[in-house]
């Protein structure tokens, strides 16, 4: 109580003054932080960092390697000629996949035909190698077209909302209501069989998931202050959507699209198996499975197993790569990016 006299309480403010608005103190100190990063260590952008994370994922790299090998054998299986000019002269496949050899029908695997031959003596190894052209192009083209339809529609629905959103998303709901195969069968029945008709049928069911996914992302990304900032600068909607919103909303769509290639290949094979795929006799993996169905009972397993394995390997690899991509672009693993972080 003795020091009470010196430490009297007060109701007056301002006995202790904090004078902190003089920045000369900080400016001196700031100089020390003005260090220059070496150009080599400056991480360029998110894609570079994502690739670095992807490279650390062994299983994804294995998947990528399998896909690379399949792509390689497919491309170099037979020469590729465009309008009479041969642009790829190599021919890895031992036989022409469409040539029948009636001297060797339904033969089991042998030195001459490592995967055996089918009912008309066609070499199955050659057909599996060459058939990748159908399956892989169908997968890539379908996903590509589906993205170019689904991404703009999803972005518009999410960004503008209101009746635009209602129209697009109700259309998506309607398409979602159909089982995929029913819709595809109906469509192919109308359009007829063929490469582009099959792609049309596949695109119709694939784009909806991209549109829905992107719309959801856009809904959250468009609330970011940098979008408001662009509006405050007077940027046009088109530029806001494709410069600020979509690039920051694409990560999950890219993951979905990668995985989607596998699904599409599988669906194409299913259509081929049902006889709704390409023209009969095309060395497409699904169609080959379908043709070999009857001979499986007769013990000629090689006719179905090898194209089946090709489908399995490709879809598995795509899924491994897709998982790797997911981990790589996952914002949770992205410690330095601030997208979507709001307190």
């Amino acid at each position: 109580m003795s020091h009470e006299s010196q430490r009297t309480t007060t109701t007056e403010r301002g006995r202790i003054r904090v004078t902190g608005f003089d920045t000369s103190v900080f400016e001196d100190r700031d100089e020390r932080f003005e260090w220059q990063q070496d150009e080599s260590t400056v991480s360029r952008d998110r894609m570079t960092r994502a690739w670095e994370r992807f490279k650390r994922n062994r299983t994804a790299l294995v998947g990528l390697a399998i896909i690379a090998v399949m792509l390689f054998t497919t491309i170099f299986a037979r020469p590729i000629a465009i309008e009479g000019i041969t642009i790829q002269p190599f021919s890895l496949a031992p036989f022409d996949p469409t040539n029948s050899n009636f001297g060797a029908l339904n033969q089991g695997p042998s030195a001459a035909h490592p995967f055996g031959t089918d009912w008309s003596g066609k070499d199955i190894l050659s057909r599996v190698m060459y058939g990748g052209r159908y399956s892989l192009t169908i997968g890539v083209i379908t996903v590509g077209i589906a993205l170019s339809v689904g991404v703009p529609l999803g972005a518009l629905a999410g960004y503008y909302g209101g009746w635009i959103d209602e129209v697009i998303m109700r259309l998506v709901d309607i398409l979602y209501a159909f089982p995929f195969l029913v819709l595809a069968i109906a469509l192919i029945a109308v359009l007829g069989q063929g490469f582009w008709n099959m792609i049309t049928a596949l695109v119709l069911v694939v784009w909806i998931s991209y549109a829905r996914l992107l719309r959801g992302e856009v809904l959250s990304v468009k609330e970011n202050e940098y979008v408001t900032a662009a509006k405050a600068l007077g940027a046009r909607d088109r530029s806001i959507i494709f410069r600020h919103v979509v690039p920051n909303a694409m990560a999950p769509v890219i993951v979905q699209a990668t995985l989607g290639i596998g699904t599409v290949v599988l669906n194409a094979a299913a259509l081929g198996f049902l006889g709704l795929g390409l023209e009969p006799g095309s060395p497409e993996w699904g169609s080959m499975l379908a043709r070999g169905r009857s001979s499986l009972i007769q013990g000629q397993w090689w006719i179905t197993v090898f194209p089946g394995l090709a489908i399995f390997l490709f879809v598995l690899s795509i899924n491994l790569v897709g998982d790797g991509v997911r981990d790589a672009v996952d914002p949770q693993g992205d410690t330095s990016g601030g997208a979507g972080v709001r307190e």
């Binding site: 952008d45 998110r46 202050e225 940098y226 690039p247 920051n248 990016g337 997208a339 979507g340 709001r342």
Partner: peptide
């Protein structure tokens, strides 16, 4: 919020 007002890309 300076962390949300700049486009990270």
């Amino acid at each position: 919020n300076p962390f949300a007002s700049l486009n990270p890309r």
